Simulated scan of single mutants.
Amino acid sequence: MLVEKNVSLQPWNSFGIAARAQTVVRVHGVADVQAMLADPELAAAPKFVLGGGSNVILTGDVKPVVLKMEIKGLRLLEETPRAWIVQAGAGETWHGCVTWTLAQGFAGLENLALIPGTVGAAPVQNLGAYGVELQERFESLDAVDLATGRTFTLDAAQCGFGYRDSVFRHAAPPNARTTGGLPRGMGLAGRAAITHVRLRLPRPWKPELGYLDLERRRAETGVEHPGAQQIFDWVCAIRRAKLPDPAVLGNAGSFFKNPTVSPDQCADIIARDPGIVHYPMPDGNVKLAAGWLIDACGWRGKSIGKAGVYEKQALVLVNRGRCGDSVTGGEVMTLAKAIQSSVYERFGIRLEPEPVVV
Rank of each mutant, 00 (worst) to 15 (best):
A193P: 05
P173K: 08
D32R: 00
L141V: 03
P204V: 08
G210V: 07
L199I: 12
R137C: 09
I231W: 02
V24C: 06
R26A: 14
V56P: 00
P274S: 06
E354V: 09
N175L: 08
I304W: 03
R82E: 15
N175H: 13
D233T: 11
G51P: 01
D142S: 13
G308N: 06
G89W: 02
L67R: 03
A38E: 05
A83I: 00
R240Q: 15
G131N: 00
G329D: 04
E208T: 14
K5M: 09
A193Q: 02
P207K: 09
L102R: 11
R320T: 07
D39V: 06
R177F: 12
I115H: 03
R82D: 15
S342W: 05
E311H: 14
G60A: 14
A31L: 03
A157F: 05
G210N: 08
G298H: 08
A122E: 03
A31R: 04
G348D: 09
T179F: 12
W12Q: 10
A147N: 11
L76E: 11
L315G: 03
M36Y: 01
V49Q: 00
G120T: 04
D233S: 14
P274G: 03
V316H: 09
L74A: 11
A172Y: 03
A252N: 02
L9H: 05
L112F: 09
W84I: 04
L112I: 08
G185E: 08
L201G: 09
T80W: 08
L42T: 02
R169V: 09
L9P: 07
E345Q: 15
A252E: 00
W234P: 01
V33R: 00
T151L: 10
N126G: 06
Q230E: 15
Y163R: 05
R191H: 15
N6H: 13
Y130E: 00
S326Q: 13
V144K: 00
A121H: 01
E41D: 14
W299Q: 02
R322E: 14
P174H: 12
M333I: 11
D325Y: 10
R150W: 02
G305W: 00
T99N: 10
V24Q: 04
A44I: 02
A31E: 13
Q265L: 05
A129W: 01
D233Q: 10
L2F: 04
A88F: 07
R150H: 13
A192P: 11
H225T: 15
E215D: 08
V343I: 11
I294S: 01
N251R: 12
T178F: 10
V332Q: 02
Q125W: 07
V277I: 15
D268W: 04
H95L: 07
L243G: 08
E352S: 09
A247D: 13
A237C: 07
R26M: 08
A271N: 09
T151W: 06
D264L: 12
R177K: 14
P46T: 04
Q10M: 14
D325G: 05
A314F: 06
I304F: 11
V56H: 00
L335S: 02
N111K: 09
I294P: 03
A19M: 06
G117I: 00
